[in-house]
Design a protein around this nucleic acid. Structure first.
Lengths: 212, 212
DNA sequence: AATTCCAGAGAACAGTTGTTAACTGCATGG
DNA sequence: CCATGCAGTTAACAACTGTTCTCTGGAATT
């Protein structure tokens, strides 16, 4: 199925990726709506006009970044929600996985948190769609759990959205800890993990008494 | 206590407010990090240099907008959380109050949601501080409730943050409904209210079984 | 009534932006 | 091997940006 790309296509994809990477780096200290096309090409070391060979506009590049940041996350979601072990263990495992992801891809996390309500409509929509897909997947996994017996489809989706929002909020807090003063980092990370654990535990409790 | 301002100070405050209003309007379709000082002064109808008489930079103006958008919200929070009535009633009353606020100040809500994780550090910090103050106030109100007997201070604050995040998320959803196609607006608003009600109900359930 | 103060105006600055057009050189397919 | 395609370059454009300095008119102070 996969076809070996010619030298030409390979080089094109390479600069395209360089543009995406440079943009992501520049977005650490600004929003997409203020990201200039020249700024990006300058960082890559390529002529401004080369940008148009890959993207119509910076908004278009933003949508591509959404794919990159969230597209590869689906398998992780599935495995996370459906991990075995007792309830407390699953909570800590989930939070640990989030922390690990933030550590590995901080720029991606920041981009999503920032542009989810950002000033560029197409990007907002792309993020909303991806998160809705996540919620659907979480819902499917929740449905398999015996605890969900008797739940309506609406209620399952409501809970799924709550979980997704919670995960994003937690990821954002981990990121803040990561950006804070170096010496306070471990302690702050611990605090965030503890807060997230309690909140997830409380939501889990509400879940178990939903049908009372 | 209040002193009648001279013509001079009054006129100054008037243009200052005009700058804030114009900025807020311009921020409906972009982020603060891309908002230009000339853009704002042009919208108001004053010379670009007049801007410096009121703000050091657009970031500075952003911080002022945070005060305007969130500063006046504290009394509302207090009265909301401490309203009487049975649990179901309190949930719907709270959500109704949020919806009303979004209706009345949509630009403020959008600004806070957008810049909370936005590209301008001082503004992010200002919003974080204000939200932390909100959480403290919610915590104080929660502590008065007999349900909170035996709760640790940490757990109360954890729940307070969960509620604050939930409120902001709900407000943002109401805003999206408000911005959507005119004909789908009532139905979409109803859906958001229903979703928020269920989520708050579930959190409330978790709260009541916290000490099991 | 004379003086000080200061919000806002005006002009100019160097530097930036997105977009256009015509080009070059090299990998590709006939 | 040669003709075509196309990623990236070069140059130029009008428009825009934040910031500085100088000036002005009228309110505030004395």
């Amino acid at each position: 199925m996969s076809h070996t790309l010619g030298i030409r296509q390979a080089q094109k994809q390479k600069t395209r990726q360089a543009l995406l990477d440079a943009a992501l780096a520049l977005l650490e200290e600004q929003s997409l709506s203020s990201l200039g096309l020249r700024e990006v090409t300058r960082a890559v070391g390529v002529a401004p006009t080369a940008f148009y060979r890959h993207f119509r506009s910076t908004a278009d590049l933003g949508v591509a970044l959404v794919e990159e940041a969230l597209g590869s996350l689906h398998p992780m979601i599935r495995t996370t929600v459906s991990t075995t072990g007792d309830r407390e263990e699953r909570v800590t495992r989930t939070i640990d996985l989030i922390a690990r992801h933030v550590d590995g891809y901080p720029a991606h996390v920041r981009f999503i948190a920032r542009e989810r309500h950002g000033g560029v409509q197409p990007v907002r929509e792309a993020i909303r769609d991806q998160l809705a897909r996540f919620a659907e997947e979480v819902k499917d996994e929740l449905a398999k759990d015996p605890v969900s017996e008797g739940w309506s489809e609406d209620d399952l989706l409501m809970l799924a959205h709550l979980y997704v929002d919670q995960m994003l909020s937690t990821a954002s807090l981990f990121l803040e800890a990561l950006e804070g003063p170096r010496e306070a980092r471990p302690e702050r990370t611990r605090q965030v993990a503890q807060l997230a654990a309690r909140q997830m535990r409380l939501i889990g409790l509400g879940r178990h008494h939903w049908l009372d």
